[in-house]
């Protein structure tokens, strides 16, 4: 069967988090955009080494938190001051009873912020995802154990099957492999 195989990118394995970081800095400085590093554990300073900016996660968290506070305010004010005013513990039912609602403000702010964090995180990471081309590369299984990988994607404008392979090898990459989509 004549099969057309699309190239996803080129991956290389590195010895340690340190050499991976050094290679990442070089690739960043060469101007590559569509590439990623894969490690068994988070590596401090890797975001700077890869040239990643500040994540936009904080935006959705702020919006979620503010929505939570507003929801809590409406949930407490409307019944207590509007549709069903009731005297509890001899406390008045005007703004002076506000401290009693603070725990609700706090809890709903945290809850909504947490929800929006998780949802935004799934969106950012494009999860759930059932297929990814890097798993076509057998050697990549080591990434959950002791493997440190860099994968440069074919859709990067600077990508070239020959030159990118040479680049990864010159940076100390081992088992440099062409990954099929």
């Amino acid at each position: 069967m004549a099969e057309y195989q699309k190239v996803y990118g080129i991956g290389g394995e590195f010895d340690s988090a340190g050499s991976l970081m050094q290679a990442a800095e070089k690739i960043r400085d060469l101007g590559f955009k569509k590439w990623d590093v894969h490690t068994p554990f988070p590596v401090h300073g890797m975001d700077a080494a890869m040239g990643l900016g500040k994540s936009w996660l904080s935006g959705p968290v702020l919006v979620g938190g503010a929505t939570g506070t507003l929801t809590a305010a409406l949930l407490t004010f409307i019944p207590s001051w509007g549709i069903y005013p009731m005297i509890v513990h001899g406390k008045p039912f005007d703004w002076r009873v506000l401290p009693a609602f603070f725990p609700i403000f706090f809890e709903l702010t945290v809850l909504f912020a947490a929800f929006s964090t998780v949802i935004a995180l799934l969106v950012m990471d494009q999860l759930p995802k059932w297929y990814h081309p890097v798993f076509n590369w057998d050697h990549f299984k080591k990434v959950t154990d002791d493997g440190f990988f860099i994968v440069i994607e074919a859709r990067d404008p600077k990508f070239s099957e020959v030159k990118t392979r040479e680049l990864l090898e010159s940076l100390g990459g081992k088992h440099v492999t062409l990954i099929q989509d």
Binding site: S16, A17, G18, S19, M21, Q22
Partner: peptide, 8 residues
Amino acid sequence: MSNTHDIP
């Protein structure tokens, strides 16, 4: 990382 990022 100390092997690659030596600081005086």
